[in-house]
């Protein structure tokens, strides 16, 4: 069995260090790097696509209780959330509330 502290060390190395290294590099570069530089544009595109890929995966291949729902219900909830979000000129709170409401309604009506 692994020691109790191992998960915390794992989090510090693979989580904190892996995350904060970019913040600390940001401190180092904050006076020198041009934010409009082409490399940063590419880096931003890569990280945006990565997070978008994670979003799709969490919806198509979900974890936990969400895995017990059907793909059609999940996609329907996200679609309605997106529609409300754009209809109200990118209102995040309304989009999230609409998506969640559709999911809850569908799960209570078709358990």
């Amino acid at each position: 069995m692994e020691a109790w502290w191992w998960p915390y060390l794992f989090i510090l190395l693979a989580g904190t260090l892996a995350t904060d290294i970019w913040r600390y590099l940001g401190v180092a570069f904050s006076l020198r790097l041009n934010e409009q530089s082409i490399v940063l544009d590419w880096v931003r595109a890569v990280s945006t696509a990565l997070v978008a890929g994670l979003v799709a995966r969490l919806i198509v291949f979900p974890l936990g209780a969400l895995a017990e729902t059907s793909l059609a219900i999940r996609l329907g909830a996200v679609a309605v959330g997106l529609a409300v979000f754009f209809a109200l000129r990118r209102h995040m709170l309304a989009g999230i509330a609409a998506g969640e409401a559709v999911l809850l309604a569908a799960l209570y009506l078709y358990p």
């Binding site: 994670l54 936990g64 969400l66 999940r74 995040m92 799960l107």
Partner: peptide, 29 residues
């Protein structure tokens, strides 16, 4: 129950998706 637990798990991808779309300005985003 399952519905509320599922709704809680859905919050994260939904928030990520909409906050990325809120922040999107240029066509590359």
């Amino acid at each position: 129950g399952v519905p509320v637990a599922a709704a809680l798990v859905l919050l994260t991808p939904l928030y990520f998706l909409l906050s990325m779309l809120t922040a999107a300005k240029a066509s590359v985003d």
